[in-house]
């Protein structure tokens, strides 16, 4: 039983890891798009199409259930493009849905972090002659990382538990395995064990986050 749960856990772990690998970088362009000032002035009003699209994207991703997003991404190729679904489609749809959903949350965290950096930091860098890229990479980004760490920690811990949503689409991650075991063995023990797995994993996540936080504790502002 533990072995089967362990296999399911590895699937959950894959969803978790792939989501972070995809969403952490994808959140950056989304956040930058959300903050873009590029656009055209219409009298007093300023139309910023890039920011508007990013805002709409974030709003939809945060405003609808991840479970529905998985189904939408799963069925979209078939209904919109007539592409035949394959055995891998569910898995691919799950990963894509998790990445685009979490990228929206991360983007908002990045944005709040970037906007919390005082203007004086940019001005000091500008007067010293740093390029825009240097200013962002050397001055702004390291400070943003420290500031957003607690919020990112929350999302990452939520993600560990959210991997169980893949159950709905039929991906055999840990929760699906536990549910099947509960039915076949007429016992609640698999659920309890699955809960223990999630918790232990999150405990490890907390330790890692704590380490990183401590590493950045050498300064405050």
């Amino acid at each position: 039983m533990v072995g089967m749960l362990g296999e399911g856990f590895l699937v959950s772990l894959q969803i978790f890891a792939l989501t972070l690998v995809g969403a952490i970088p994808l959140g950056v362009p989304v956040a930058l798009a959300r903050m873009s000032t590029w656009g055209i002035s219409l009298g007093r009003f300023r139309l910023r199409p890039v920011a508007l699209i990013a805002r709409f994207y974030i709003s939809v991703m945060r405003g609808t259930p991840l479970m529905l997003q998985m189904f939408a991404i799963y069925f979209a190729p078939y209904y919109v493009f007539g592409i035949q679904l394959t055995a891998d489609s569910k898995w691919q749809a799950t990963i894509v849905a998790f990445i685009v959903n979490y990228a929206a949350y991360f983007a908002e965290i990045y944005r709040s972090g970037i906007q919390s950096i005082p203007r004086g930091q940019y001005e000091a860098a500008e007067v010293l002659g740093y390029s825009r890229l240097q200013t962002f990479g050397k001055i702004v980004l390291p400070q943003v990382v420290k500031r957003i760490l607690p919020a990112m920690g929350n999302e990452i811990i939520t993600l560990v538990k959210d991997t169980s949503l893949a159950f709905a689409i039929g991906v055999a991650e840990m929760f699906s395995t536990a549910k099947a075991l509960v039915a076949s063995q007429v016992s609640m023990v698999p659920f309890a064990l699955a809960a223990a797995f999630y918790w232990v994993f999150n405990f490890a996540v907390e330790i890692v986050l704590g380490r990183v936080e401590k590493h950045l504790d050498y300064y405050h502002d």
Partner: peptide, 14 residues
């Protein structure tokens, strides 16, 4: 050719 010293220093805290 110039340097600027701000009222609130604006040092890089990290």
């Amino acid at each position: 050719r110039f340097g600027l010293v701000f009222q609130n220093y604006n040092l890089f805290p990290h």
